[in-house]
């Protein structure tokens, strides 16, 4: 009811448009979610030129697909390889690539994850059921209000013949945060 009170006061002062609030909620509940990010990842797997452009300037590439940040933030894509596993956190609050992944899950916003991701990333990964080879380095990226990261997970083996739509189904939300791996079919 405190939120309701703010809404009423701001509406009476003409500072907000209540219809716009409903539109924002509808967008985030129904139209924006990890499918957007999965679309980007699947295309990066399938199309080398797209992948190169994405790694070069993710903001421009994902904007062209219609996924742009409402807060004017920059997007950076980081790619997992045999040598490096990337993982994303926001140690200060919960900055997150909304246009690509939607609203972050509860654990992403928790103190436990925000503190431990940087301090003991391998243990956090283990909690998520991810064990990496010893010689794979773990790189943790700390998001900010201006800079959001998308992890491009490793393309699973045995997926050479799959088209973009089929590849999308292998890309989980957690695999794009770096706390999971893409699904091996």
């Amino acid at each position: 009811m405190r939120v309701k009170a703010l809404e009423t006061i701001l509406t009476e002062k003409g500072l907000i448009d209540p219809a716009a609030l409903d539109e924002i909620i509808d967008t985030y509940e129904n139209r924006i979610g990890p499918r957007n990010g999965a679309h980007v990842v699947a295309r990066a797997w399938a199309d080398p030129a797209f992948r190169a452009a994405l790694l070069e300037d993710a903001t421009a590439v994902v904007s062209e697909l219609g996924y742009y940040g409402r807060q004017g933030e920059h997007m950076v894509a980081v790619e997992n390889t045999d040598d490096v596993h990337n993982m994303v956190v926001c140690t200060l609050c919960s900055c997150y690539p909304w246009p690509l992944l939607g609203i972050p899950p509860g654990w992403y916003k928790s103190d436990a994850y925000r503190a431990r991701a940087v301090r003991e990333p391998r243990k956090v990964l283990a909690d998520f059921g991810v064990t990496l080879p010893e010689d794979t380095a773990v790189r943790v990226w700390d998001s900010t209000a201006e800079l959001r990261y998308l992890v491009i997970p490793k393309r699973p083996a045995g997926t050479e013949g799959l088209d973009e739509a089929a590849l999308m189904d292998l890309v989980t939300r957690d695999s794009m945060i770096g706390t999971g791996l893409a699904i091996t079919p």
Binding site: V3, K4, I16, L21, I24, I25, Y28
Partner: peptide, 19 residues
């Protein structure tokens, strides 16, 4: 996406004010 309606309302209100 949102655990409670007031989370969604609050989120939308803030995003709207920013936009």
């Amino acid at each position: 996406v949102f655990e409670a309606p007031w989370h969604a309302q609050l989120f939308a209100l803030t995003v709207h004010l920013n936009e």
